[in-house]
């Protein structure tokens, strides 16, 4: 069956990988249990044996597996990243998702036949940047940052000839990814190098009167009333005092959902849709992947898209947005 848009789905655990494959993922992405990927949370991710088993499970069902090695090694400590690429190649993964120039260089020299995808952590948002990565490192696909309008996505694809993977659903950061130090500013652990934004051991909640206060390190991120939804305690979703007024300075707690834009994205020449959320539960993975599978199949068959209201139940802040795909976001 010809699939017009490839559905790329998150797997934080081997169990989530199976759920995603069974729910109709065309590809699954995952990472190792260390700082070499951008979802380095306790208890999450794969060891090399789990990856091998996951790849076997997916391949047996016609699904591909991408391995994210998308953080930036700190000077003097390149080993874990090189070993992660070795292990991904050894497990017969279909691609590695990379961001660091040195890591791209290593993968290209040692495994020229292993597909290299450019992670969103590299934040290549212009034809020039994408061509730079394609020409310098032979990158065959780029995961586009969540900062472009649909028309810009289309223009960019037209100018580069590199496969484009765009975010379709999930958490929405507002900063240029891979270049945001807000979390390390408050916690000392770096999203770029340690692979963890708002690390769990630095997040705490306190009941203050009728309000729930969230802290990152010792920084007060937000206070919400009982009637308000809670959000991830990441700095870009925090509520701060600006010009004397409390406000969501960077972004309201909200989740990206491009379901109503599928036809437009397809027309723009997008190769793949990416579901965010390796840190989410397999219940989330199952619900979101199945919903997108139904819609993409309907789209491919030229049928009207089913109404997918179930997704709102798993959206951050219970609120959805088109993000930058829609004009006016900036």
């Amino acid at each position: 069956m010809k699939r017009y848009l490839e559905l790329v789905c998150p797997a934080g655990t081997p169990m989530a990988l199976r759920v995603a494959v069974d729910a109709g993922a065309d590809s699954v992405y995952c990472g190792f249990r260390d700082c070499t990927n951008a979802r380095n949370y306790p208890g999450l991710n794969f060891d090399p044996d789990e990856l091998r088993a996951g790849v076997a499970y997916a391949h047996a069902r016609g699904c591909r597996v991408f391995v994210a090695v998308n953080t930036f090694p700190r000077a003097g400590d390149l080993g874990p990243w090189q070993r992660a690429i070795d292990a991904a190649a050894d497990a017969a993964a279909d691609a590695v998702i990379l961001a660091d120039l040195g890591t791209l260089d290593y993968a290209g020299r040692h495994y020229p036949r292993l597909r290299r995808h450019l992670s969103v952590q590299a934040a290549a948002a212009s034809p020039l940047a994408i061509r730079f990565y394609a020409e310098t490192f032979g990158v065959s696909r780029v995961v586009l940052p969540r900062v472009l309008a649909v028309a810009e996505v289309a223009a960019l694809i037209g100018k580069t000839g590199v496969e484009a993977e765009v975010f379709a659903f999930g958490s929405l950061g507002t900063m240029v990814e891979g270049r945001c130090y807000l979390s390390s500013y408050m916690t000392g652990r770096s999203p770029s190098c340690d692979g963890v934004c708002a690390p769990a051991e630095q997040v705490s909640y306190r009941e203050e009167g009728n309000q729930l206060a969230s802290y990152l390190g010792d920084v007060l991120m937000n206070r919400v009333d009982a009637s308000e939804g809670a959000a991830y305690p990441t700095p870009c979703k925090g509520r701060f005092l600006v010009r004397g007024e409390p406000r969501y300075l960077f972004e309201e707690p909200t989740a990206l959902n491009v379901m109503p834009l599928l036809a437009e994205l397809k027309a723009a020449g997008v190769t793949a849709l990416k579901i965010e959320g390796r840190q989410r539960s397999r219940a989330y993975v199952g619900a979101v992947v199945a919903a997108f599978r139904r819609s993409l199949d309907a789209l491919a068959a030229g049928e009207p898209l089913p109404m997918e209201t179930a997704l709102r139940g798993v959206a951050e802040g219970g609120r959805e947005t088109f993000g930058a795909y829609q004009k006016g976001w900036r």
Binding site: G229, A230, Q279, A283, Y284, G313, A315, G318
Partner: peptide, 13 residues
Amino acid sequence: EGRLDSDAAFFSR
């Protein structure tokens, strides 16, 4: 049992 998405349950309080 892993049948409810924990983040969603947290977002919705």
